[in-house]
């Protein structure tokens, strides 16, 4: 592979990144616009951020979103990890292929259909729609993502670690709790983060399953934008971009540091 600088490489790189980031840059820049008109630049200002924090409807929506995301991703992680464990560990039980197919099916199911079917279910069971139903709906679709992440980690997990735990006197549950879980913890955590993110930005399923008192942030933004884009929305989006960026950078720095430390430790171990 050539690592030399060529004009072709430079152009490809510029175009690619421009495609990805120009929309976001525009959004961030206009969030600091003095003017109420989104497309007309009238000088720098942070007043829309102030406006945003005084807008109770947005704050309420943000709080609902956060609550839903934390609850649904936690529930999805527990269920998804259990499902992954059964799929990878339980050997060849009757109907295993069907089960594993069924767990991944919601990944490819159109969200509209998932949302609609859940709505019909809640109506027929007469469950009032609100935070509780959104949590259930988000858990349903994000647990398959968790189970995909966790089962790929479990598949590469050295089975003899569990056997060693059993051999040393653990019950199967104790072996899972004190050996398997700590070892697969990184996958479980990234599964949780994935579920959390999915829940944060879901619009379609949430709009099917939310009630009047439980508007999530994406629903709020979407309905606000239909009445015209306000600089407040830009400010809100900028904050979200900032949070995500900080999160991603922190996570990659941490894993990079862990890797470097591990390599150093291993080197030291072999030098003795």
């Amino acid at each position: 592979m050539s690592r030399k600088f060529t004009w072709f490489n430079a152009t490809a790189l510029t175009l690619g990144f421009a495609f990805l980031y120009i929309p976001m840059i525009v959004l961030v820049v206009y969030s600091f616009n003095e003017s109420k008109l989104v497309t007309v630049w009238a000088g720098f200002s942070t007043k829309w951020y102030g406006e945003l924090f005084r807008n109770q409807a947005f704050l309420d929506a943000a709080w609902v979103t956060l609550k839903v995301a934390v609850m649904s991703s936690t529930l999805a992680t527990v269920l998804g990890t259990m499902a992954a464990y059964v799929l990878v560990r339980a050997g060849r039980f009757h109907g295993r292929t069907l089960f594993s197919g069924m767990i991944y099916a919601p990944l490819v199911m159109p969200e509209v259909i998932t949302g609609l079917s859940l709505l019909l279910l809640f109506i027929s069971l007469n469950i009032p729609r609100g935070v509780f139903t959104i949590v259930l709906a988000h858990t349903t679709f994000s647990m398959c993502y968790v189970s995909v992440v966790v089962s790929s980690r479990l598949a590469s997990f050295d089975r003899s670690l569990e056997e060693a735990a059993l051999d040393l006197g653990c019950t199967p549950f104790d072996a899972f709790r004190s050996v398997t879980l700590p070892v697969i913890a990184p996958a479980v955590i990234s599964g949780w983060l994935l579920a959390f993110t999915l829940s944060l930005d879901d619009l379609v399923i949430a709009s099917f399953t939310s009630g009047p008192s439980s508007t999530t942030l994406p629903i709020k933004i979407f309905s606000a934008v239909r009445l015209g884009v306000s600089p407040e929305i830009n400010a809100l989006s900028t904050i979200m971009i900032a949070i995500v960026t900080v999160g991603v950078i922190t996570a990659s720095l941490m894993s990079k540091r862990a890797l470097v430390k591990r390599q150093r430790d291993e080197q030291r171990a072999f030098q003795q």
């Binding site: 003899s160 060693a164 735990a165 059993l166 051999d167 040393l168």
Partner: peptide, 20 residues
């Protein structure tokens, strides 16, 4: 008798040390 109740211990080929 399940493995955890046997007066038998095993040293695994991969050593199976608990990494954490």
């Amino acid at each position: 008798v399940p493995p955890n109740k046997r007066p038998v211990n095993m040293m695994f080929q991969s050593y199976a040390l608990f990494p954490h």
